[in-house]
């Protein structure tokens, strides 16, 4: 199993993850080995098996749609590097 560099570039785009030119060969090699390894899964017949998403088969618990947390945005935004008037700053996206 060998993945093509173009396939890795597509994945990087989907994952919003930059892989530098100097890293690409290593990523192609190791990801190909990983995918080759997990391909063993194809050897077992699972046509009659229900997929398992939760180890105790518990349903997702939902909570009432009520406000339970206090507003602490100043505290939380202390971890952001660029904030103005309570807003996070990012590169300009609209001309």
């Amino acid at each position: 199993m060998s993945l093509k560099p173009e396939a890795i570039e597509k994945l990087c785009d989907l994952a919003r993850l930059e892989v530098g030119a100097d890293e690409l060969d290593d990523v192609v090699d190791k990801l190909s080995r990983i995918v080759g390894f997990v391909d063993q899964l194809q050897s077992v017949d699972t046509s009659a098996v229900e997929p398992m998403a939760h180890p105790l088969s518990q349903p997702q618990r939902l909570r009432a749609d009520v406000v339970t947390e206090a507003d602490q945005h100043e505290r939380f935004q202390a971890n952001a590097q660029h904030v103005m008037d309570g807003l996070y700053l990012v590169p300009k996206v609209i001309e």
């Binding site: 994945l11 930059e18 890293e23 190791k30």
Partner: peptide, 24 residues
């Protein structure tokens, strides 16, 4: 590009491999 750089520089090699495997 900003997202891609933040993540590309912030994560190490094994984490990148797992994210890409998961995406695949």
């Amino acid at each position: 590009e900003f997202y891609m750089r933040n993540r590309g520089e912030g994560f190490g090699a094994e984490v990148k491999r797992r994210i890409l495997t998961g995406t695949y």
